[in-house]
Design a protein around this nucleic acid. Structure first.
Length: 564
DNA sequence: GGGTCTTGCGCG
DNA sequence: AAAGCGCGCAAGACCC
C-alpha cells in the first residue's frame, strides 16, 4: 500500500493507493490537521505502507520529533529529478512535459530543526494543478513501468527515498560530539581560546617565526597577495601560495609557513566559532542534502559535515555505555568499475585487497602504482605517473578500461551517460555547445578549435567519472538503506523507553563510502556483522550474481579518531 | 557598505 | 596556462 500525504489549506489530505497508483477500494481518503498527523501515521505504520510525500525534509523531521519513525517512503521531488533526467525514462510523459512544480528547487529548501515540532509549509510555493502529489505519483509509476528495465530504475528511486529518510534521521539523532574534547584538541594545537579578534597563542608564535624568517614584521599571512610579495622579496621564485607549491621550495620560512596555514585553516573551519555554531547538547547536526551532487552523492549545507578534518575527529565520541561502529567500503570505486564493465578478470584480481590483486597479475609493480593507475583510469589522467601507468592497466584489463573510455568519448560528443541503476548525467551547458559549434565553423581559428577540444576532453573526464562515482553512490545508498533496516531489527526486542529511534543502534554519519553507527556497547559486534552483511546485499542488488566482492573495514571505537 | 568572484584547502 | 573527478566553506580580492 502507498499513502499519499498532501498539504491542503486546512491541514493534510491522506490518500491510500494501491501500488500501481489506483485508489485503494477499501480505504477512504482522510483529512487531518497537522497536529493529529503523527498519530495517524503511527497508526498506519504497522502495515508498512510507503508514505508518498513531496519532500522528505518537509514532512519527516516533525514526525521524528513526535516520536514517529516510518519504514519506507517515496520522495517525489528526488524521484522526479531522476526520472526527468534519466535516459531510461526519456520517452515518458513525465520527462517530456514542461518544467513545473516538481522541477523547482524551492520545494527542497527547508531548515526544519528537529526541535521545532512544526511542519515547514509557511513558504510553500503557490500550488498549481501539477502540484498534486497523487497525480505526480501516478506519472512517476508510469515512467518507471515503461522504462527498459523498471526494476533498476525502481530500485534507484527506492534507494534515493530511503536515503532521504536516513538523512532526516541522522540529523535528528545527531553525531555525538564532545565539546570538551574538541576544546582540548584546539587548545593543544592552537593554544587556549583567545579573546575575539586575536590569534591563539601557538598560532601567533608560528606566525612570528614566519615573519622573522622572511624579514617581514608586518606580513598578513592570510592575504595571498601580501604573502606572495613577501616570499618574492625573500628571493623565492613562485606564482602561488598553495601549500603544495610551497613544499617544493627549500627556505627556512617555509616549514613554519606551512604549519601556520594548517593551523589557521583548523581555526577558521573547525575552531571555537564552528563549535559554538554547529554543536549543541553534545550533538553535531549538519543539514544533509541527498542527491545534492549531480552524480547522486549527498551534499551538506552548513557545518561542512563532509569535510571534517582528521585533526578533530577525536571529538566524535559515543555516549557512556555506547560505541561507535565506523565502517568503510574498501576501494569502492575500483570495484564498482569492475562490476559496471562486467570485467570478471578485474573483479577476480581485486577479490581481497584490490590493489595488491592488481599487482599480483603483473600489470604494475607496486600497490602504490596500482592505486595511482586505477585513479587515473577513473578520473581520466593523461599526464604524470598516473597517465604513464594507465596503458599497462589497459593491457591487463581491456574490458574495464574500455568501459570508462566509452563514457569519456560519449561525453566528448556531448551525449549523456548513465549509472548502473539509471541516473543520467546532465547535458553540457550552452557555452560548451557554442564552443563546439564555433570550432567547426568556416572561420574557426586554431585557438577556437583548441578551446573546443579542451572543453570536450574536460566534459569527457566528467562523464567518465560520472558512471563510476554515480554507481558507487547507488551502491552506498543500497548499503545504508539495508543497514538501516537491519539496525532497526537488531533493536526490535528493546523497549523503546524514550524514543524508539535513538534508543536502538542507529546511523549517525555517512561520507560517500563510509558509515558510522552509534550503538549500545553490547550490540556493537552484531552491528559490525550487519554492516558487512548489508554490503554483500548491496552488491547483489546492483550487480546481481556477478562475482564482485565488497569488503568492509569495520572498527568498534570510542572515538572517530581511532577508526583508521 | 554590500554582493560576487577567486583562492586555498578540507573531505571522498 | 592547463592540470585526474566530485563537493562546501572562509576570507581576501574585486567591483559597484
Amino acid at each position: 500500500m502507498h499513502v499519499v500525504l498532501a498539504h491542503t489549506p486546512d491541514g493534510v489530505q491522506l490518500t491510500p493507493l494501491n501500488d500501481d497508483g489506483t485508489p485503494a477500494p477499501d480505504r477512504a481518503p482522510q483529512t487531518l490537521t497537522l497536529a493529529t498527523l503523527p498519530d495517524a501515521v503511527a497508526q498506519l505504520e504497522p502495515e508498512a505502507p510507503r508514505w508518498v510525500w513531496d519532500d522528505t525534509s518537509r514532512w519527516y523531521p516533525a514526525l521524528l520529533s513526535a516520536g514517529v519513525r516510518v519504514e519506507r517512503c517515496v520522495d517525489l521531488r528526488l524521484s522526479h529529478v531522476i526520472l526527468r533526467n534519466s535516459a531510461a525514462s526519456a520517452s515518458s510523459e513525465l520527462a517530456n512535459s514542461p518544467r513545473g512544480h516538481w522541477d523547482t528547487a524551492a520545494v527542497a529548501l527547508s531548515t526544519v530543526t528537529p526541535e521545532a515540532a512544526l511542519f515547514d509549509f509557511d513558504d510553500a510555493p503557490a500550488h498549481g494543478d501539477d502540484a498534486d502529489p497523487v497525480t505526480e505519483f501516478r506519472a512517476q509509476r508510469i515512467a518507471v513501468a515503461t522504462a527498459p528495465d523498471p526494476a533498476r530504475l525502481g530500485l534507484l528511486l527506492a534507494a534515493e527515498s530511503a536515503g532521504a529518510l536516513i538523512a532526516a534521521e541522522m540529523r535528528f539523532a545527531g553525531l555525538p560530539w564532545s565539546e570538551h574534547r574538541h576544546d582540548e584538541l584546539l587548545t593543544s594545537l592552537l593554544g587556549p581560546r583567545p579573546r575575539p579578534g586575536t590569534r591563539p597563542a601557538l598560532l601567533d608564535a608560528v606566525l612570528a617565526r614566519v615573519r622573522d624568517e622572511l624579514g617581514a614584521p608586518e606580513l598578513n599571512p592570510d592575504s595571498p597577495n601580501d604573502l606572495l610579495r613577501a616570499l618574492r622579496a625573500a628571493g623565492m621564485i613562485i606564482t602561488s601560495t598553495r601549500s603544495w607549491d610551497l613544499k617544493q621550495i627549500d627556505h627556512p620560512a617555509i616549514p613554519p609557513l606551512l604549519e601556520y596555514k594548517k593551523l589557521s585553516r583548523l581555526l577558521a573551519a573547525n575552531g571555537w566559532h564552528w563549535l559554538d555554531t554547529w554543536v549543541a547538547d553534545g550533538r553535531f547536526r549538519p543539514d544533509y542534502v541527498p542527491g545534492g551532487v549531480v552524480t547522486g552523492r549527498w551534499a551538506t549545507s552548513g557545518g561542512g559535515a563532509l569535510q571534517l578534518p582528521k585533526q578533530i575527529r577525536g571529538a566524535v565520541v559515543p555516549d557512556p555505555g555506547w560505541k561507535l561502529v565506523v565502517a568503510d567500503a574498501a576501494q569502492l570505486e575500483p570495484r564498482i568499475l569492475a562490476g559496471l564493465a562486467g570485467d570478471t578478470r578485474m573483479a577476480e584480481a581485486g577479490r581481497e585487497d584490490f590493489y595488491e590483486g592488481i599487482v599480483a597479475t603483473g600489470a604494475v609493480a607496486t600497490r602504490a602504482e596500482a592505486k595511482v593507475a586505477m585513479l587515473g583510469a577513473m578520473y581520466g589522467a593523461t599526464t604524470g605517473e598516473s597517465g604513464r601507468l594507465m596503458p599497462r592497466l589497459t593491457r591487463a584489463f581491456p574490458q574495464a578500461i574500455a568501459h570508462v573510455e566509452a563514457a569519456a568519448r560519449a561525453g566528448e560528443r556531448g551525449e549523456i551517460v548513465s549509472t548502473r541503476l539509471g541516473r543520467s548525467s546532465p547535458l553540457p551547458g550552452e557555452d560548451w555547445q557554442q564552443a563546439q559549434g564555433d570550432a567547426y565553423g568556416p572561420e574557426a581559428g586554431e585557438a577556437q578549435q583548441k578551446r573546443a577540444l579542451s572543453a570536450a576532453r574536460s566534459w569527457g573526464r566528467f562523464t567518465r567519472n560520472f558512471v563510476v562515482q554515480g554507481t558507487a553512490a547507488e551502491w552506498a545508498l543500497c548499503w545504508m538503506a539495508g543497514l538501516r533496516n537491519r539496525l532497526w531489527q537488531l533493536g526490535e526486542h528493546m523497549d523503546d523507553t524514550q524514543n524508539g529511534f535513538t534508543d536502538r543502534p542507529h546511523l549517525v554519519f555517512f561520507l560517500h563510502d563510509e558509515v558510522m553507527v552509534h550503538a549500545p556497547e553490547h550490540l556493537a559486534e552484531r552491528v559490525a556483522d550487519e554492516v558487512r552483511a548489508a554490503a554483500v546485499d548491496a552488491g547483489r542488488l546492483i550487480f546481481g550474481r556477478m562475482p564482485i566482492t565488497f569488503p568492509v573495514t569495520c572498527a568498534i571505537v570510542d572515538s572517530y579518531a581511532d577508526a583508521k
